[in-house]
């Protein structure tokens, strides 16, 4: 009886809330540098999670997801720096801008399959990169947009505990709130009938059409939603990074977020978050020993592909299942 109810209980815990509360303590229990890393992890996690809505849930291999991250950071950065628009307007504008970009580009992309889909997403992201890199008047060209201001966080000062924090730490709290709300929304979407339809498309697009789904329209919807959330991540990153630059949008960044997602595991909701945390921390550790981080990353990626194709969470799940089977057999023997 006990055994049977344990997994159900685990499932009922609102994990997003638990992770949120745990992460919220970092500015008080950790160093300023810990908060810096935690901010980076939170933003990367949202970016990877948005990609996984395509990769893991819908089965679409987008090699240009960084385009929507980039649109988000430029829209938010330009609005806040050039036009002094408050964050509360700039952030939704970034999300909407990215979603619109994803709608226009996605409209064409979902007409293609497999490698052609990947190539077209790559081409579109390079178009965005070329625009950001060359359109000096608006995007600052290769100089980018330096000194994007922090949002006005005076309202936090009146809250006990939060008021004592530095602005970077207060921004971390804000980032955490935005990211966790986004993750909760994505989790809800995946668990919804719409999310179930996306998984049927991943599993078998032909069959999905014959249960009455307009596959392209669903794929486009997923593309737009994923683009919107990537835009939110991009907007936060521009502020965190104290500037928006065209190399945010260069194509290897798309590969990087893809590695993050796969590293964590695309078959599990928390996979991208685990992948983001692992990659950011690992990068931190390894770059203190050697400048050859890409070499290490490439080696990790090879290991991942040949030894743990399910990623970290996939590997853990398999391990746990194996353990449970083993102990179960011992108990019954």
């Amino acid at each position: 009886m006990m055994k049977k109810s344990a997994p159900a209980l685990v499932r009922r815990i609102p994990w997003v809330l638990v992770v949120f509360v745990a992460a919220l303590t970092i500015p008080w229990v950790g160093s300023r540098y810990d908060t810096f890393l935690a901010t980076q992890i939170a933003i990367s996690a949202l970016f990877a999670m948005s990609l996984n809505l395509l990769l893991g849930t819908t089965g679409l291999v987008s090699f240009g997801h960084v385009a929507y991250f980039g649109i988000g950071s430029y829209v938010c950065g330009i609005l806040m720096k050039t036009y002094a628009v408050p964050f509360s307007i700039a952030l939704p504008a970034a999300a909407i801008g990215s979603a619109l970009g994803a709608l226009v580009f996605g409209f064409f992309c979902v007409r293609l399959t497999k490698i052609y889909f990947a190539m077209l997403t790559l081409a579109f992201s390079q178009i965005i990169w070329a625009i950001c890199y060359k359109w000096n008047d608006v995007t600052g060209g290769d100089q980018g947009i330096p000194d994007v201001p922090y949002p006005n966080l005076d309202w936090m000062s009146s809250i006990p505990l939060l008021g004592d924090l530095r602005i970077a730490q207060q921004f971390y709290v804000l980032t955490l709130i935005v990211v966790m709300l986004s993750l909760a929304a994505i989790q809800r979407i995946i668990a919804s009938p719409f999310g179930l339809m996306l998984t049927t498309i991943r599993e078998n697009p032909e069959r999905a059409a014959s249960i009455g789904l307009n596959v392209r329209r669903y794929e486009l919807s997923a593309f737009v939603i994923a683009g919107g959330f990537a835009g939110i991540a991009g907007a936060l990153f521009g502020i965190f990074n104290r500037g928006v630059f065209s190399d945010f949008v260069y194509w290897p960044k798309s590969a990087e977020v893809m590695i993050m997602t796969i590293l964590g595991g695309i078959d599990h909701f928390w996979g991208p978050v685990v992948g983001a945390a692992t990659l950011v921390l690992l990068n931190q550790e390894i770059t203190s020993y050697t400048q050859y981080w890409p070499f290490v990353l490439g080696t990790i990626l090879l290991l991942l592909l040949f030894v743990f194709p399910g990623g970290i969470v996939g590997g853990l799940t398999t391990g746990l299942e194996w353990l449970r089977r083993k102990t179960g057999r011992r108990a019954s023997a």
Binding site: L55, A118, F295, G298, L301, L305
Partner: peptide, 14 residues
């Protein structure tokens, strides 16, 4: 194709 793309990308990094 996802794994093929990533394998050749790993080679790019290395």
């Amino acid at each position: 194709e996802l794994y093929q793309l990533l394998l050749t990308y790993a080679l790019v990094l290395i």
